[in-house]
């Protein structure tokens, strides 16, 4: 007698909430289009973009990458902890992820203050128009993510924690693409 093993439908394989994935894909499309537009505009003035980029603090942005990636780890560990019904550990991990999100925003705020003090604004150069637009929009997502992590830490059902962490990983994912394109590519 042969046994048939049913493979789940692809939609059932998708981890977490389908609507969260719709949000993740739509956010990736928005940021993806922004980064592609940035490189397309750079074609007309690569030297000007390189000179403008020299005003950025690459090491601080690199540190922020470490902060965000570590925050993502804590959020992912929180999902595992909630699945294991370790609620206190879940909340501590989510709090840690939120604090690192705030550290990211503080470093970003210092970066903006530094630019403002140097008289660099949105209209200084097209590079900075994209810089403020893309990093500012991303920072708004980080702030939203910190609030969401706080909410799912409070209402900590396994599904809420998984969805909140997925949003946070999307923020993480956008940054690992945005950071090299804006800060590192010469």
């Amino acid at each position: 007698m042969s046994e048939t093993v049913e493979t789940p439908h692809p939609l059932e394989q998708l981890p977490g909430d389908l609507m969260m994935w719709v949000l993740i894909v739509s956010e990736l499309l928005v940021f993806g289009a922004g980064l592609a537009a940035f490189l397309a505009v750079r074609i007309g003035d690569p030297a000007g973009f390189a000179a403008a980029q020299d005003h950025l603090h690459r090491a601080a942005a690199g540190l922020n990458t470490v902060v965000l990636v570590t925050s993502g780890l804590l959020a992912a560990l929180a999902v595992r902890a909630r699945e294991a019904d370790k609620r206190l550990r879940t909340r501590c991990l989510l709090a840690g992820a939120s604090v690192l999100g705030l550290v990211f925003l503080v470093i970003k705020g210092m970066e903006y203050a530094d630019k403002a003090a140097a008289g660099i604004g949105v209209e200084t150069h097209p590079f900075f128009t994209f810089y403020y637009l893309l990093t500012g929009f991303h920072a708004a997502h980080v702030l939203a993510g910190v609030i969401i992590l706080g909410l799912v830490g409070w209402k900590d059902s396994p599904r809420s924690v998984e969805v909140g962490a997925a949003f946070w990983h999307m923020v993480d994912l956008v940054w690992v693409l945005l950071f090299p394109v804006i800060y590192l590519l010469r």
Binding site: P15, G16, I24, H169, L173
Partner: peptide, 8 residues
């Protein structure tokens, strides 16, 4: 990130 953090 997609594979490990987001669980794909």
């Amino acid at each position: 990130i997609l594979s490990e953090y987001l669980g794909l």
